[in-house]
């Protein structure tokens, strides 16, 4: 089950540096491992992650097969205005997970 945990401070002051933490449930199968029958396990990874703040992209990450399962990302941004943060993970096998979080900036 694709699932993500997102931690965004619910409130901030204008100009505050806020920390955003995300954890996503994903096997991150490298494509280099062999299964019990000796067959190559097909690659199944998240390829990109983006975070948009009121529609504007503020953070992007590209993943490789070397990234561990259930990738955790923490990054910072400036709190500018009240609005929505949209988190988007895309990957192999048409993997798409979109989550949103709201923040109130005073």
């Amino acid at each position: 089950m694709a699932r993500a945990l997102i931690n965004v401070p619910p409130k901030a002051k204008v100009g505050d540096i806020i920390e955003i933490k995300t954890l996503v449930s994903h096997p991150m199968e490298t494509g280099y491992r062999v299964g019990l029958g000796g067959e190559i396990l097909p690659r199944n990874i998240i390829q990109t992650f983006t975070c948009a703040y009121n529609g504007e992209e503020i953070y992007r990450a590209e993943f490789s097969p070397a990234v561990a399962a259930n990738p955790y990302l923490a990054f910072h941004t400036l709190a500018m205005e009240t609005g929505t943060l949209e988190f988007r993970w895309t990957g192999d096998n048409d993997f798409l997970l979109v989550e949103t979080a709201s923040i109130t900036v005073e």
């Binding site: 089950m1 699932r3 945990l5 933490k21 954890l23 449930s25 399962a69 259930n70 955790y72």
Partner: peptide, 13 residues
């Protein structure tokens, strides 16, 4: 930190 501990997914399921 339950937000960083991947076992949280198992607990939620």
């Amino acid at each position: 930190d339950d937000m960083a501990n991947p076992a949280s997914f198992w607990a939620l399921d």
